[in-house]
Design a protein around this nucleic acid. Sequence first.
DNA 1: TTGTACGCGTTATCAG
DNA 2: CTGATAACGCGTACAA
Lengths: 337, 337
Amino acid sequence: MATIEDVAKLAGLSRTTVSRVINDQPYVTDEKKSRILQAMKELGYVPNSSARRLRSQKTETIAVLLPRLRNPFFGNLIEAMEEKASEWGYQVIVCQTHDSKQKELDYLQLLKTKQVDGVVMASVINDWCDIEPYLESGPIVLCNEYKEEAQVSMIHMDQRRAAYESTSHLIDQGCKQIAYVSGGHESHAAYERKLGFTQALQDHAIPFHSEMIIDWALDVSDGQKVFHYLTKHFPEVDGIFTGSDEVAAGIIYEASESEWEIPADIAVVGFDNQMISLLMVPSITTVEQPVREMAEKTIEVLCSQIIHKSQRNDQRFVYDHELLVRNSTKRKKLSLQ
Amino acid sequence: MATIEDVAKLAGLSRTTVSRVINDQPYVTDEKKSRILQAMKELGYVPNSSARRLRSQKTETIAVLLPRLRNPFFGNLIEAMEEKASEWGYQVIVCQTHDSKQKELDYLQLLKTKQVDGVVMASVINDWCDIEPYLESGPIVLCNEYKEEAQVSMIHMDQRRAAYESTSHLIDQGCKQIAYVSGGHESHAAYERKLGFTQALQDHAIPFHSEMIIDWALDVSDGQKVFHYLTKHFPEVDGIFTGSDEVAAGIIYEASESEWEIPADIAVVGFDNQMISLLMVPSITTVEQPVREMAEKTIEVLCSQIIHKSQRNDQRFVYDHELLVRNSTKRKKLSLQ
DNA sequence: TTGTACGCGTTATCAG
DNA sequence: CTGATAACGCGTACAA
């Protein structure tokens, strides 16, 4: 591997001058500049980035922590993040925590060891007090997650309102025995969602059945299990709020294999507006999140914090959702339309 | 930031000894060892990885090149790769090329600049002769892709056989006017698929209509367009081979909004066995790929090449597919069953 | 068993 | 405009 020294020798100049050319700095004669460029080409010289990192204390790399890529919500999120980061000249390291406290801390260690300049947390498992110390080593930005007590920037939706709205929609459609089905880990986002759900029940004087709360449903096959569990133990159920379109799809699929009719017997709402929610029969009422916008804003905020270290680091951006009403909840005759 | 020097001073020992402790090397008294560990804890010392990289010429990082994460096939692929890489102690950088030659080369540059120890290419856009030079800088492994002329390890399925088999299945079901619908870039994998397709037609004496070849269909919405395009221009079509379940789903969705019946009027096969292929009505006949196995093998091969630089680097692993027959192609009465 | 001294490849400082 | 020289933080022959 050719080094800067080799280039300097071949061009008959010093390392310093070569370095100036590499970094587009002024004060180099055009003649020497081209001599150096020539030498670089001849040797196939490429600057060694490990050395640069050591010298400049910068890595041009960020880490994105999330539970798992299999969930298409996170797939879409990181897709948009990688594209934006690439525009800013940053690499992206994928870090799947699988909802493990230990893995989360392991990945945060990347910040301490200077392997990354900053971190996006699209999922937070540990208590904030265990995460805060890492802030000394570099900026952290929360996306799709929030912690009241955290002094960091956060980009997210109003999960509570979204849940409130879609639950109210179920109630509007005449549901009175509504189950709440959500994913494994109790993130703050999930917590807010549940608040919105219970608030909606309360405001409409619908009873809350704590037995009809399910907190282990992550994907399609969990949705299938949920359907059997609910219809067996609570045959009076007539509405289901879910935290993801995959779970909703699993429920609807199993219903189609049984005697239950969706939405006549049970109305179901999903979350995220994945492609699948449109394609299912019946199509799934769901909550659209501005994933790409949130992802891009997250990267912008993080990158500018990396560059201007002084900047205030506790901005908050709240995005709007949109309830998309589809066939999985349309129980009422729409006589007025 | 505390350095190894600070730790040494505090412990009253030399940098070397501290380094030995960090790297679990022998020849250190237990007493001094614990004194050093104590000092490290007191200072919150963490080894600086940029310095280590420079010194050891290793990054413990690999890059995975793929077209886009939005395609769930690649999402699943990188999910499994990241997990396996993590077991080996490697970070994963996501590199979405969006089928751009330039982006592909930009990302390969990571190898040259020593930002990664190795590269997985799950997509190859450039001619191999443009990629080969990068091999000087570190190992490259192909996953789900192959190039006859390349002297690198490859992990993939026999795409040709898979396509042959699912096309033959369409023919068995009585299809005579079969369209071929595939994704944008003409990868070698896609090339092999098309070979299998045409071979199947030929072996069964079914005419090949070059006008019924579509090469721009990537996702659900493309599938929707495909449906309209085909039914308008080739109303005689009675079978469609697609390169992805998303495209197949888009076709089926549009058919359900029209007068066309699937599979009675048109039989459709997908590819990849995504969740969606099971959930659609009708469910989609598709080709199951051992994604996780291929991903894990890929990482194993790459990591061991990184570690044992001498090892032969042109191994080839071919995995088996499985045709899953579902309702989107079941046209014949199964009188014998 | 421990320490000394050098080098990994760059960039920044300062003197010319 | 150009060049010598000192860091950046760590690992490792080699010597003791």
